[in-house]
């Protein structure tokens, strides 16, 4: 399916933070992810590093807060 498994990459390690994601939006320094059921997951202080539709993967990275 053309949806994403979303990973958060921290300290060189990937953790799955959401699955079946069909929409992602950066807002106020956070990344909001919406799944197929319309449920949302908020990842604080993060940015989208890669969105790869072929691999159905999205990778987020933590953003350093000043």
């Amino acid at each position: 399916m053309c949806d994403f498994t979303v990973y958060l990459e921290e300290n060189g390690e990937r953790t799955v933070v959401a699955t079946d994601i069909i929409k992602a939006r950066k807002k106020d320094g956070n990344v909001f992810l919406m799944d197929i059921m319309g449920d949302t997951t908020r990842i604080e202080a993060a940015t989208i590093e890669v969105a790869d539709a072929f691999a159905q993967e999205m990778v987020l990275k933590r953003v350093e807060c000043n």
């Binding site: 069909i22 939006r25 807002k27 956070n30 909001f32 059921m37 319309g38 449920d39 949302t40 997951t41």
Partner: peptide, 17 residues
């Protein structure tokens, strides 16, 4: 209608539509 993205959750984590 199904995927309105107000994205106004207050805390990190998961919220239901």
């Amino acid at each position: 209608q199904f995927y309105e993205d107000d994205f106004d959750g207050e805390e990190e984590g998961h919220t239901h539509s």
